[in-house]
Structures are given as C-alpha cells and as structure tokens.
Design a protein around this nucleic acid. Structure first.
Ligand SMILES: [Mn+2]
Ligand SMILES: [Mn+2]
Ligand SMILES: [Zn+2]
Ligand SMILES: [Zn+2]
Lengths: 154, 154
DNA sequence: TTGACAAATACGTATCAATCCTATTTAATA
DNA sequence: TATTAAATAGGATTGATACGTATTTGTCAA
C-alpha cells in the first residue's frame, strides 16, 4: 500500500466514523474499488470485480454500501438512477429539476440557451445530440419534510 | 375532438408516415397521453392511464411505442434511463457526457463553473443540491458505427 | 373494394437490477 | 473478553423491461 492509498483509506475511515458507520472490510473494498475506477460503474460491475479478491462479498452488500456512501456524501449517484425510464413529449431545448424526494421532474427554460459553454475539446471528441442542465434537490413540496431523512445507517 | 387536438393528431400522423410507421389506435393513444401529460411519465404510468379507455392495450406495446417514438425523434427519454444505477467517486463539481451507444460516461470540467446561470425563480422554488450539465451523443469510438442504427421500426 | 403481406399487437415468459428477509457474523466499546 | 447493535450473506421477491410467438391489422396495389 503506497502513501496515496493510505491517505485515501485514512480519509475514508474518518468520514465513516464521523457518521457512525462501522469500518468493515466490505466497505473498504467497495470504496477502494469505486475510488480507483474511472468508469462510473454500476453496483453489479463493482461486485463482479471485487468477487475475485473477496469471494464472499454479496451483491446486496455492494449495493447497500454504495447507497450508504451516497447518502453520507462521499460518493455520488449519477444520472440513470435505476428508476423506470421517463419520457418527455417536449422536444424544445429545456432543462430539468429532479426532486430527490418525490421523483417529480420539473421543466425550466433558460432565458439564454446559448450561454451554455461546452469546451471545444469536448465538442471535437464527441458527437453531441443532446444537452441539458440537470439540477437535483428538493421541490417546494418536499423540502421541509426532507429534513427528517437524517442519517440512519443501512 | 377540438381543433387543437385535430392539429396535434394531424402532425403526429405526418411524422409517423414520414418514417414509415403505421398509424394504429395504440400509437395515437400513447402519443396523445404523453403529449397531454406534464409529468414526464413512465411507460407504466401511461399504460395505467390508458387502460381505462383502452382496456386491451398492453404494457409491452406502450413501452415499445414510446421507445419507437423516441427513436424517430418525436419524444425524448429523460435522465434515469432505466439502466442500472451508476456511481461516481468524484464529488467535485463536474459534468458528464453520456454515450448512447456504449453507455460510457465521460467526465469533463467546466473552465468557468459559475457560468451556469440558473433562473432566480428556480433557485427560490427549489432547494438545489446538485447541478450538472448532461450531454449525450456518441463517443469517438461509437460515432461512426452509430450511422448504421438507421430507422428500423419496432 | 378487396386481398396479400409486412408490420404491429397482446400476452405469456424470461431476464435483470433492486430490494427484502432473516439467520449469522462482526466491529466497536467498555 | 463479553456485550450488543450494526452489518453481512445469500436466498426469495418485486418490478421494469425485453423477448418469443400466434394473431390481428394497417397499408397499398390490383
Ligand atoms: Mn421536460
Ligand atoms: Mn463523473
Ligand atoms: Zn418533491
Ligand atoms: Zn461510446
């Protein structure tokens, strides 16, 4: 284990303890696997990888662990939240606010759609067919009751 | 049927014919249901609604129909694509490019993160915990072979 | 108007991610 | 080292989606 990894593990330990989470070999393994990945993996993908060196680890644990990490804010869940596919009849360029509590998607329009600047390196490297600002958080309805989703573990 | 709906149906018919799709009662019903919805519904939600007035329509048809519509570009699929949940260890503010062909997610950083302007109405109405520019399209690897995904029906 | 035929549908089955259940194990603390 | 709540493994369940196929139907040309 080199210095960089030790620091990583150390920081991980501090963050877990701060939230009252036990430090388990499974959590360490999941965290390291995700931290060292650049591919925004799914739970299944991480599990498939870990099983080589940690044969007894279960998919359920990997999944729960990742969700726990996301809840305490040491990792993020990215778009494609595993919910059923959602459709939109509105093909005008517009943006979305996604409520993490009630799962509603709210439209909003950008007064100046061209203000969104995309680095030239990106426009060259990819063929871009869609661009959208994706905001997430809590809608007016849900924002107050969201406070009660405190910090239970798992 | 009022004038507005006739125009809607007319435009729908033209778009389908232009792509060689048959005009079926199911497709009309699905299109109307989505068009009149403001909630970015799932296939299941649309099916549940339609079944009242169209008892024989199957969920499979609703689902296929929506995907067909998305492919010919008369509706959109929005974030939460039904894929397995994806995770990101990188909690810095950054953006994503999502390849529609290989499903890879590529990071990119905004040289000027504060350039993203969010209308004041939105910041007041919602508690925003995340903001990200979500681009989609084809990565360098997939962009050429993407041409072959022409316009088969269903 | 009708007949032929490819396209589309209904519905049962299969798949796969996510979640639940619960007996067992284990990290944390004194 | 003993206690205890937290966490895990792994089997079962759920729910969305995709597939296979017999049947129906929209389209178009005769
Ligand atoms: Mn929308
Ligand atoms: Mn990322
Ligand atoms: Zn809400
Ligand atoms: Zn790709």
């Amino acid at each position: 284990m080199n210095k960089k990894q030790e620091i990583t593990a150390d920081r991980f330990t501090r963050l877990c303890k701060a939230r009252g989470l036990k430090i388990t070999p499974q959590r360490i393994a999941v965290y390291e696997a995700l931290k060292n990945s650049k591919e925004h993996p799914s739970a299944d993908r991480i599990h498939k990888q870990l099983v080589h060196t940690f044969p007894s680890i279960s998919l359920d644990t990997v999944n729960r662990t990742l969700i726990t990490f996301a809840r305490i804010g040491i990792i993020d869940v990215v778009e494609g939240q595993g919910d059923p596919r959602r459709f939109d009849p509105n093909r005008e360029a517009h943006h979305h606010f996604y409520c993490l509590s009630c799962n509603k998607i709210f439209d909003f329009h950008d007064p100046d759609p061209e203000q969104i600047h995309i680095p030239e390196q990106i426009t060259q490297m990819f063929t871009i067919t869609g661009k959208r600002l994706c905001l997430s958080g809590y809608c007016n309805h849900c924002r107050y009751q969201a406070a009660e989703t405190a910090t239970p573990a798992n």
